[in-house]
Amino acid sequence: CGLQPMYAGSGGAAVAQGLAEVEVSPIAGQDGWLVRNALNDRLRITGSNAAPRYRLDVMLDDSLEGLGVLNDDTISRERRILRARFQLVDIASDEILLDSTAGSDAGIDVVSSEYATIAAEQTALENLARDVADRMVRRISLRLREAGQQQ
């Protein structure tokens, strides 16, 4: 049914090579630090450190919602939402190749110990940083594959 490996075969190797040429600009805040590291881990998969050809600018939106209200109007469950707006820019021509968003959320049980809830919210952020980085790298791979096919 027309499926072929994303990073192998004719176009695939070029996509992986293209990923290695993406340079992620710094992102503010702790969530920015986590997302940037997660992105760098997922982009460097060919082992070759190539000169940067694309620049990835990312802005993050991190929020926490309460739900699962009990009868005494207290909440018992939270949901942390991390969303990214990212642009892939061709460094040479300064042309924007991709302007897209990626986001995900994680559920947190509000437990009696407030510090345990805070720690769970922090862990949710670290899991979300990896998930959002995965979604962004997939979107970039598809765009690089498209560019590869056009040539």
Binding site: S104, G107, D109, V110, V111, A116, I118, A120, T123, N127
Partner: peptide, 23 residues
């Protein structure tokens, strides 16, 4: 156990190294 109490398996922590929150 002070920070690993809110444990629930879901898609966001299925592939984490440690599915518990906190340390």
């Amino acid at each position: 156990n002070e920070d690993a109490r809110a444990i629930d398996l879901e898609d966001s922590n299925l592939f984490s190294l440690n599915r518990f929150p906190g340390y």
